[in-house]
Each structure stands twice: as structure tokens, then as C-alpha cells.
Amino acid sequence: MRKLINHLMSGYGALFFIFLYAPVILVVAYSFNSNPVNVMIWKEFSFDWYINLFGGETNLSDSSAYVESTDQLFSALKVSLTVAAFATVVSTVLGTSVAVAIARYRFRLQGFYRLLLMVPMVMPDIVLGIALLIFFVGVGMNLGVTSIVIGHCTFLTSYIFIVVSARLAGMNPMIESASADLGANEWQTFRRVTLPLILPGVIGGALLSFIISMDDLVITYFISGVDSTTLPVFIMSMIRRGIKPEINAIATMMLMASVLIASAGIYFKSRKA
């Protein structure tokens, strides 16, 4: 009886992972399918869609190629990378400093700050997206890279805060007292003791923030201007216009980037100092 239950659980677990990964693997597999008419009918293995995206010569006829100009795609990629880089730097500084303040000092508003940094994580994206849209339009700020960076920082700060706080909570505070006892001032202690110890958490959180920013769709959708489309927003508009095989190739490359950066981020985040 017990054995049967164990087998059932394993089967269920296996199905769960198939459900989680099969659809994505399908996209990756079919990005190498040369069939230009129906993406889901396998014809033969080819790199054509990738070559086509990078502007190389392929056997594909012009009509089957979809992205009118790959320029659009690359400019969207450029916007995404720029936004992710700036948003990551700003939110890493903001989130880490609040995390250090809450973990290492006692002050009256601690509860308030914890709540303030929890709310963006729980709030539906769309609410934050339109609140920011109303705000930017109201103060007369142009929608563009800057507005997207600001928008991303509002929720990435919370994310960094959570990752770094977890790191600080797992740290032995005696090490810092020891540093103080040995005559280091507070700044020296922070720079020479605390920071190196939380650094893996900070780097991990920053990498994860970078990828969350790269992949964010909903908030960006509302606050990106006409000439500042990010990659996910661009892909959504592509999908809305019709399913074409290039999307598989773009999707595969984005998935690879996500997997690489997120793995590195999770590795750093959980690494022992």
C-alpha cells in the first residue's frame, strides 16, 4: 500500500515536471524546423530561422520571413538591455541599503519599511503599470527608456531587498561586533566585513533583477513609449499579428539567456560566503 502510494507520487511528480517543461522544450525543438508554412509540422532540421534573424543568407523565400526588418528586433533588444542594466544598478543600491538598515539598526519605522517593500511584490502588475502611466503623463514626462527604468526600479528594489535581507539574516552578527571590538569604525566594518559577506546575495539578487527586468511585460507595456519598445512587448505584438517561425528562434534565444542568467543568480544567491 505504502509502496503503491510512493509510486503514484513519483508518477505524479514526473507528470508535473513534464507539464512544466514540455511546452517550452517544444518551442526550442521547433525553432529548428525548416517548415515555413506550418510551424508545428516537422519538415527537416535547419538553422535557417536563426541565420535569417541575424541577416544571413538562407534558402527561405522573402515572403516567409516575418520580421520586416531585423533592425526593429535589435533596437528592442537594445532598449531591453539598457533598461535592465540601469534598473538593476539603481534598485540594487536602493534595495541593499534598506535591507542593511533594517537588519543592522533599530528604528521605529522598521515595520513600515517592510510593508512598503512587500506591497510591490503582492500588487498586480497592471495596477502599478497604470498608476505609473497616469503619473508620468500627469507630470508631463515623456514615455521612454527613463520611464521604464523608473517603473522597473519600483518593484526590483523590493526583490533585491528580499534577497539581501535573507542573506543578512543568515549572517552571524558576532562577526561584525568582532570587527568593531578590533577597532574598526562603522564604515570600515561595513566595507571590509559586512559587504564581502553579503556580496554573493547582492550579486545573485542583481542578476535575478536583471533577468526579471528583461522579461517584464505588463508594467513595461503601459509605460513604454512608441520608440522604446522592449523585447517582450515587441514579441507580444509579433504574436498578436500572427504566429511565424522566427518567433520560435527568438523565444529560444531568450529562454537560453534567462536560464543562464537565472542559474548564475540562484547560484550566487545560495552560495555560502
Binding site: 517550452v24 517544444l26 518551442v27 528583461m214 522579461d215
Partner: peptide
């Protein structure tokens, strides 16, 4: 891991 990969691509997989 899926949390850190693009939502629109994961949905696109289901459209396919």
C-alpha cells in the same frame, strides 16, 4: 526557474 523566464514566451508555447 520558469519564474525567471519570459512570461510571454511561456504563453506562446501554449498558443503553439
Amino acid at each position: 526557474l520558469p519564474f525567471f523566464s519570459s512570461m510571454i514566451i511561456r504563453l506562446y508555447a501554449w498558443i503553439l
